[in-house]
Nucleic acid binder design. Structure first.
Length: 479
RNA sequence: CGGGGUGUAGCGCAGCUGGUAGCGCGCUGCGUUCGGGACGCAGAAGCCGCGAGUUCGAGUCUCGCCACUCCGACCA
């Protein structure tokens, strides 16, 4: 048995041997992505795209329910437009790609390929907004953006990535602040309930905010190796952008006013998060809510009469309430077991002559390989229950790891005592000075990730400078 | 952007002191198999990353470039 287990995983580097290689192996062998001929630009293959579409469907539904509308903005931003907001251009200029020619003509003004679309939305808002009666404008777009990153990895950091970017404008600051937090709650629900990914949430520190934002809130997830992944952000802009772009409306009191603005985004990076949160030595483990195939039916001895027919019959029944596939390829059953485990399918249904005789099938959970014999008549209730159990199982496992690898520390020494192979989230106090953030990074390797909403008073002083502490910060090593 | 590694069939690799390219897996066809990555037979598939140079002759030597990948710094 040991030998057989060995052989099943030969395609994927063991997770504890080389985490980075394990990650890349899964991306390629589960056929989520392919590299293209341009560095940092990847192809989302059907299986990866299907996961992304499922994420889109869930989140798109949430924001539509709260009144948001989808739009499509241009891909090019004139240089002069990008430069209207000072902090914003400083933040993004180093990583934008430029278009300087159209056909054989050099352009009068260079255009950048959008790294994000605040400037485009503001420009548009400035043209269409006239009255407080139009507010709020709750816009979102699904698109790709380009940021010329130096080092790239599938999903986690690519030069082009697919995302949604929400951009809203509101009559009052309070309303815009509430929007920022409401979206953060949507992100939380998406990650925790659907992607089974527990989070730490809170505002970013001053130095870590989005370029041009007044407040930036983040959701942070812990990966299998203890490192932090920023899974989404929601920004409150105040009226900084609307002033820079001259976005105005006539208020209830007949005065000219600037609206208050938010923006927020999640990207295909979430798929990287799913891989690194739930994956194991057998490969990908997909949260049932976004798995392109939730149940794979493996016919055993499929040449024997009645077996394939039964498999198709079950597929027809199951497809009424879940996403199901029959693997009727010529491969051996053992090969199919390993293949679909590697692709992270939450449930496997085995059906063979022996089962058909007894009117039952074998159901196997992906997360722990637990097998159960289930009467065919009970599938309609058994499968949804099992899918929920898998979801809960992988959430609890991730939450357990996050708890185990979150350290409350009072001193630099305590932080440095955390073993390299037990990297995790460090809760420690902070005085509020950027210099101490920098010092913390230099002395411990841990950088500030966010100021968690759930605060604890671990001590009275900043562990770096000894001055009175103002907040507890969650520090980590980020992707 | 700094440091390391790797580019030879779809994938993983071998190819020595230069002599005209091979193995495993996969792929195609036929047959036998089928409860944890089955087997037989027959086949197809290569600008040896790109460009110069040395040489009668370069996958192999020299120089340059490019790409991918890992580790740092930076970043969603």
């Amino acid at each position: 048995m040991a030998d057989k287990n060995q052989k099943m995983v030969e395609a994927i580097t063991p997770i504890d041997q080389d985490f980075a290689q394990w990650y890349t192996d899964i991306c390629l062998k589960a056929e989520l992505v392919d590299y293209s001929s341009v560095k940092g630009f990847t192809v989302l293959r059907p299986y990866g795209q299907a996961i992304w579409e499922n994420i889109q469907k869930i989140f798109d539904g949430m924001i539509k329910e709260s009144g948001h509308e989808n739009v499509a903005m241009p891909m090019l931003i004139p240089e002069s437009l990008l430069q209207k907001e000072k902090d914003h251009v400083e933040g993004f200029a180093p990583e934008v790609a430029w278009v300087t020619c159209g056909g054989s003509e050099e352009l009068e003004e260079p255009m950048c390929i959008r790294p994000t679309s605040e400037t485009l939305f503001c420009d548009h808002f400035s043209r269409v907004l006239h009255s407080w009666r139009q507010l709020p404008l709750l816009y979102n777009q699904w698109c790709s953006v380009v940021r010329w990153e130096k080092t790239t990895r599938p999903f986690l950091r690519t030069r082009e990535f697919w995302w949604q970017e929400g951009h809203t404008i509101h009559e009052t600051a309070e309303e815009a602040r509430a929007e920022t937090l409401a979206i953060l709650d949507n992100y939380t629900e998406l990650c925790e309930k659907y992607l089974c990914m527990p989070l730490v949430r809170g505002p970013k520190t001053e130095s870590d905010k989005f370029a041009g934002a007044e407040d930036t809130y983040a959701i942070e997830a812990m990966m299998h190796d203890g490192k932090a992944l920023q899974a989404g952000t929601s920004h409150y802009f105040g009226d900084g952008f609307s002033k820079a772009f001259d976005v105005t409306f006539t208020g209830r009191d007949n005065t000219l006013q600037h609206p208050f603005e938010t923006s927020w985004g999640i990207s295909t990076r979430l798929i990287g998060g799913i891989i690194m949160t739930h994956g194991d030595n057998e490969g990908l483990v997909l949260p049932p809510a976004v798995a392109p195939v939730q149940v794979v039916i493996i016919p055993v001895a499929s040449h024997k009469p009645g077996v394939l027919d039964k498999a198709y019959e079950l597929k027809a029944r199951l497809s009424k309430f879940c996403r199901v596939k029959v693997d009727d390829s010529d491969n051996s059953p053992g090969w199919k077991f390993a293949e679909w485990e590697m692709r992270g399918v939450p449930l496997r249904l085995e059906i063979g002559p022996k089962d058909i005789e007894k009117d039952q099938c074998v159901l196997v959970r992906r997360d722990n390989r637990e097998k159960s014999f289930t009467p065919l008549a009970e599938l309609e209730s058994a499968i949804p229950t099992l899918l929920d159990t898998v979801a809960k199982g992988i959430f609890d496992k991730a939450a357990g790891r996050m708890k185990e690898r979150t350290y409350d520390c009072k001193t630099i020494e305590e932080i440095n005592a955390i073993p390299e192979d037990k990297t995790g989230f460090v809760n420690a106090m902070w005085c509020g000075e950027e210099a101490c953030e920098d010092a913390m990074r230099e002395q411990t390797g841990y950088a500030s990730q966010c100021i968690p909403f759930e605060q604890k008073q671990l001590s009275e002083v900043c562990p770096v400078c000894g001055k009175p502490a103002t907040h507890m910060v969650m520090w980590g090593k980020a992707y």
